[in-house]
Nucleic acid binder design. Structure first.
Lengths: 187, 187, 187, 187
DNA sequence: GCCTAACCGAGACGGTACGTCGTGTCTTAAT
DNA sequence: ATTAAGACACGACGTACCGTCTCGGTTAGGC
């Protein structure tokens, strides 16, 4: 088996530069050339190890540990979800953090292969964590938990993406309320 | 005072060419230069009247009457929504029609001003139509109808956008079922 | 016979604008569009009456009376020529006036028809005046006066055009001296 | 330190293409875009190494060895000059070869920096060669040899540039005759 | 003094070339 | 073998002018 003689130094410089530029100039104006320059790296080095700027950004984000999600479990499902959904809404409402999601979403739209990675490495962990918490709640039988999860996150995504209304704490709470009404055993 | 004497002939040629190329080559590979060439028009004429390819496509779609949406009202809210949501899911599942939505969504992510137009001219009419139908149903009091609408469309958008699962008729039906459970007076 | 309903007002505005822009931006950067704008005139009006920017400039210059040339005749041919050649050299040395000649020369190089006009309306009058003065001097028989005239002006043109040396008063004097030696009866 | 590794292959292709197009279409209609296309080269590669089409043409001509000039020395100055001047006049009279000179002259008029190169690389060698031959002749003392050279070439340039008369062998001979009268010790 | 052409300003139009930018591939020299 | 550097062919960008073409709105003859 061959050891990759890849330079860790370069890898880090590239990922860091990518995140910095993402914050500075926004995703659409992000270029491989700029990343290489800022990282003090040859363009070839980027092309050798990644398929495009989307792949670089993805790795940068995953590497940055955006993925961490630990769900509270106080025994009160409704309250726990409220916590999670409030946090999610706040994240989408924050222009700074929101840029990150925009970046990935755009790539996701254009590139099927990348979408797969995003789904598996960023999205699923979060959704699964919520689903798992739901599975310990008093859910009506016959209800698809995956669908319930989407009932929680879908509207947020939709509203954020299409800028179709404000993302407030009240919104989060109402969303949880309605979803609970939809799937809890006792309405 | 000077009247702007815009050529309707050119406008039509450009919008038509844009739609044809969108179908042929897909949005990311769409080029102002190609649109101009196909339309038999100078590039300047496009730049004079639109802010970029996103704006052209938007106008092309709006102009093409993609906006039309007439909701059935059989008296049975659940059945009517099932019809609408099934149709929506089918549209998102169809790779052909879906390309159009992808095109707009991408531009929407990148351009705030454009997003506003999309929201007002394409999105709102559809959402409002559904909301209006809901308002004639047996909804529990205190429930925000806008939120119910998002409960219906959000999950679809979410699943489609992130390729997070299949978009089938069963999916549509379950979605309607859960939403009804969330907001109908009689559960 | 039909009278031309041409607007003298526009004609003047165009010629004036052309000369101003020639001074401001130099000939190569001069555009019909800029002339029209500065003159407050439609482009069509320029294209209707002139064949291009060269023609406009030429008329502007001829109209400006650049053509006037009255030769002194003190009886002393050598002294008279010295006066004329010194003036000519000074004109070519002056960057401001020189720009005019540059403009015409460029057009002359590119456009045969224009060259003819320049030759007849600007160049010939000057050369003829000198030739005429020469004919009243003590020229050796068998000497072509046209050639003598060129012996005087050619070197200046050459040096100016190719920036092949300084254009000073001494230069003018030496030039006259040599030419006199070439053609005067008494050396 | 960084070494520039310019592609000789591209350089040659560009210069060759430039000369071919110059012959085909003439200087005013010559285009960087066309040169790049004909040379099978990116436009950027031209802009990287030259300042404009004038610079390309100049290098192409210098590179093509237009510069070579060997003067005869039979001992008879008058005869030798006759040979040179006849050749020069013939060159200017030939529409084919003349196009080249036109091209350079135009650029020279517009661009000071380029003019310097033309002067040093194309013009000076020729003039210096003649001057050197003159210095071995019976020139009257006190006569500036540079001026004599200009007495020979200036009129030709003048007549050619302004199309002020025919460029014939007789013209060449008269020109030499007059110049000799101006500067030879024995008239 | 009115009528009706030609002429006017304005500027949109189809084009062509501009000079710049970023792409992804390549070559080179230096670890 | 991998790296930083950056030249390369390519293709699109958005801009500037070209010369032609409508538009209304004067304006100056000939009646």
């Amino acid at each position: 088996m061959t050891t990759t003689r890849r330079s860790e130094r370069s890898r880090r410089a590239i990922l860091d530069a990518a995140l910095e530029l993402l914050a500075d100039t926004g995703y659409p104006d992000l270029t491989i050339e700029a990343i290489a320059a800022r990282a003090g790296v040859g363009k070839q080095t980027i092309y050798r190890w990644w398929r495009g700027k989307g792949a670089v950004i993805l790795e940068a984000l995953v590497d940055g540990g955006v993925t961490d999600m630990t769900l509270p479990d106080t025994g009160d499902l409704r309250a726990d979800l409220r916590t999670v959904i409030r946090a999610t809404v706040a994240e989408f409402a924050d222009p700074k953090l929101s840029a990150t999601t925009r970046a990935i979403t755009i790539e996701t739209l254009a590139d099927e292969a990348l979408a797969e990675q995003v789904r598996d490495q960023l999205l699923r962990p979060q959704l699964t964590a919520v689903k798992e918490r739901l599975s310990r709640g008093e859910i009506r039988e016959g209800v698809d938990l995956d669908l319930v999860v989407e009932l929680l996150f879908g509207p947020i995504y939709h509203r954020w993406l299409l800028r179709n209304g404000p993302l407030t704490e009240e919104y989060a709470d109402q969303l949880v309320e309605l979803t609970m009404a939809a799937c809890l055993r006792n309405g």
